[in-house]
Design a protein around this nucleic acid. Sequence first.
DNA 1: ATGAAAGCGCTAACAA
DNA 2: TTGTTAGCGCTTTCAT
Lengths: 334, 334
Amino acid sequence: MSNPTLKDVARVAGVSPITVSRALRVPDAVAPSTRARVDAAVRETGYVPDAAAAQLASGTGNLFGVVVPTLEAPYFVDGLRGLADTAEAHGVSVTVGQTSYIEARAEALVRAMLGARPRGIAMFGPEPLPLGRGLLARSGIPVVEAWELVEDPIGLNIGFSHAAAMRELTERLIASGRRRPVFAARYAAHGRAVQRRSGFAEATAAAGLPARSIDRDGASGFEAGAAIAAAIVADRQECDALICAADNLAAGAIAEFARLGLRVPGDIAVAGFGDLDFAGILEPGLTTVRVPNREMGRMAAAFLLDPDWRRRLADGPRAIDVGYSIVARGSAPL
Amino acid sequence: MSNPTLKDVARVAGVSPITVSRALRVPDAVAPSTRARVDAAVRETGYVPDAAAAQLASGTGNLFGVVVPTLEAPYFVDGLRGLADTAEAHGVSVTVGQTSYIEARAEALVRAMLGARPRGIAMFGPEPLPLGRGLLARSGIPVVEAWELVEDPIGLNIGFSHAAAMRELTERLIASGRRRPVFAARYAAHGRAVQRRSGFAEATAAAGLPARSIDRDGASGFEAGAAIAAAIVADRQECDALICAADNLAAGAIAEFARLGLRVPGDIAVAGFGDLDFAGILEPGLTTVRVPNREMGRMAAAFLLDPDWRRRLADGPRAIDVGYSIVARGSAPL
DNA sequence: ATGAAAGCGCTAACAA
DNA sequence: TTGTTAGCGCTTTCAT
């Protein structure tokens, strides 16, 4: 029942275990005839090398760890996909874990990943890590923190300023004539939403406008957005621009406004964040902020794979701002 | 630079390595005072147990392997999320790999996963696995094949009939008066699309109608859908119902039809597959097929975690049909 | 409650 | 080109 081992294969092939090991890892270091016998024995026995044993013996593994807040958000999934694409192309496995925005879970995840002695760890949406940060730093394992710009990166930081993005979006909305903007989020305190709101607040403050905001959750982002729109209408809030922390909120809000008889962008402009796939096909199209999600994942993988990681980190920049771009569409002409 | 080991912790704590091991795994098997000293030493040294060594010594790990066709499709991501949620709640890590619908990659992935000696392997969207199937079966590792109903499951099969779903959807569309249905897919040969088309064909055949179909790709599913709609209009195809293999295709098609002046569902009905988040907020709402994606992931994890896996598989059913439901909305009244 | 010895399956280093 | 020896870091079994 137990799996065949190197020894079993060696016996079948009539060679020593180390020869099998070599035949599998460095085929050229073994005589062609030997190699053939080993290959045959491998097939016959159904041998699959034990990665744990190999890692223990060699001291090197072939794994990336990725920590994401949640797989519910398409942007993190896009990042994961970019990373996984690159990793897989290099024969590196990817283990993924969700923090669910819970600090303790983030800690536990990091510990578990460190235990696997991965070749690199990517943190999408860096969490506060009271103890974990120290462990990560001491582990010597390459770490990329992505999605936002952080204070003092453990390893490399790849991201953009959520605050700046929202500030610019809000500024342009105000410049287009909107005087009563409201910021909407699903979870007031979650990760990047805080930073986005602060960017919004900076822009309103600069224009001498109040920084009003509303938070509401729902079964999905769309429903949350619909709830937000409904609340705004029900409360007869003075609002001529709804700036949402995410595209699905915006989409849900637009749909609900339409249902309630408000015209977008005539009565109210609506903007989102993320430029999700559907942003362009809505009617009207969604004005939003585009971010290179997948690219960040790819970059993270490329850096973690870099054999010169240490030097590169020492010589080069420790933070890479990938920027963002504002996509103006019909829902909020800019 | 190298990580501290059990020995290092033991030295600091003034006990033997095995005592540290016990203090960490079975705290109750050790005197409270000893435990305290060990915990202190662990913190002081920043010790993180090596999972590979533990797995090698104990013969048991704490990992799930998940094989998905692609992380681009939201339904597989939902499934992954359901599985990961459950796994994480039980302290099990999840490694994920994409086949990109390439058989060789599926094989390589399965091999890599088997090498990690995981506690279970989930295949979302089972691929053909000429050699891999044998390895999987022989490995003794619990395997769940999910998303579709397969011929002869390796372990447990959790899915639904894509063909039946499409047949029923098509039947109802025909019953509603549509006589010139066309099936649309992004990739003609990919996985489940084949089965969905065959269900479509069964329904048209039963009604004495031709089984027409169109395939077109694009930068995204939405763009592919738009291209499909454009092609239908450009070719002046007689089509009063477009049945898409995925919701994003349908959404893109609806948008394009609108742009081209066709009324949905007046001139043409459009249906999708998947009931993605946005299906309900489109205008008109999207008629589609809903499938318990996340639930399949949760079920898969629960089964793989079952300590009685073997017996349960021997006694219970080897396949679980989770079914589907057709959601009729404005884009195709049924 | 604690420890000593052995070994999990593999690979690095050194022979032959 | 092939084999021998030792040991990776941990847990098991068997003492004490």
